[in-house]
């Protein structure tokens, strides 16, 4: 009799506790976290990038004049390098910068463990996993115009423009760099040391400037001649461009603690 009552009580208790279950709390000693503000500055070989500027054209390394009508890129999987050399990965760090949207030039890396850091590393583009995963949202929403519908995967770096040298229709330049599968994998990583130690602390917002050089697409390993290469959407020519920008696309600017 009593046993049955106890049994019943147990069932009720179990049912109640299941519905009230909460995710387990993190370790007792919570590690404090801080944020980092990222400021992107887009340039073409040292000159500020201005979209649709038909008056003063840019020159690529081959000496070809060109103007830029669109410039967009992803960076993801940001890691900071701690003083002791340890790489601290920041989960869910995906950023889309669009030269046409000044708001996107200022971004924030959040939930970074407090501490002192000497460098940064990130993927230029989107990691392979997310390229082949299901429908994403946020900055990875395919509605952002950086996802190929006929050949799944993200466009990592998109530069569109015009050059009198281009043999394409309306002298167009179309550089849509992406592809996460060998042999045409265009995922590249950027790693660089800070000019001075970066301090991350709860309640503070240090700032890091990243200078992005659109001219880097066309020089480095192989100088691009717009008469010969003016269109790529993945494939071997995108690899040529990715190899070009792997080293020169980003440069660290000022660190403000």
């Amino acid at each position: 009799m009593k046993k049955q009552l106890i049994f019943l009580a147990c069932i009720l208790f179990a049912a109640v506790s299941v519905t009230n279950a909460k995710p387990p709390k993190k370790g007792l000693k919570e590690i404090k976290q801080g944020n980092l503000s990222l400021h992107f500055k887009n340039v073409v070989d040292g000159k500020d990038l201005k979209l649709n500027d038909s008056v003063s054209l840019y020159k690529n390394a081959n000496g070809d004049d060109f103007k830029v009508t669109a410039f967009k890129y992803y960076i993801s999987n940001v890691s900071l390098i701690a003083k002791n050399g340890e790489k601290v990965a920041i989960p869910d760090s995906y950023f889309l910068v669009n030269a046409a949207d000044s708001g996107s030039l200022d971004q924030q890396v959040t939930n970074i463990p407090e501490g002192k850091y000497t460098g940064i590393s990130f993927t230029i583009g989107v990691d392979s996993l997310r390229n082949f995963a299901g429908a994403q949202t946020g900055v990875l929403d395919p509605a952002k115009g950086m996802f190929w519908s006929w050949n799944s995967g993200y466009i990592f770096v998109k530069l569109e423009g015009e050059s009198p040298k281009s043999t394409a229709k309306k002298n167009r330049l179309t550089f849509h760099i992406g592809g996460a599968k060998n042999p045409n994998n265009t995922i590249r990583t950027f790693t660089q040391k800070f000019p001075k130690t970066l301090k991350i602390a709860d309640g503070k917002l240090p700032e890091l400037e990243l200078v992005t050089d659109a001219g880097a697409l066309f020089k480095g390993k192989k100088t691009v001649d717009f008469a010969k290469l003016n269109f790529t959407m993945g494939g071997p020519n995108s690899v040529v461009v990715a190899d070009n920008y792997a080293d020169g696309l980003f440069r660290l600017g000022k660190v403000k603690n």
């Binding site: 390229n131 082949f132 995963a133 299901g134 429908a135 395919p142 996802f147 519908s149 006929w150 050949n151 799944s152 995967g153």
Partner: peptide, 12 residues
């Protein structure tokens, strides 16, 4: 075989 996931297959 250009599309890798059922969820994004209608996008084309």
């Amino acid at each position: 075989g250009g599309v890798h996931h059922i969820e994004v297959s209608p996008m084309n």
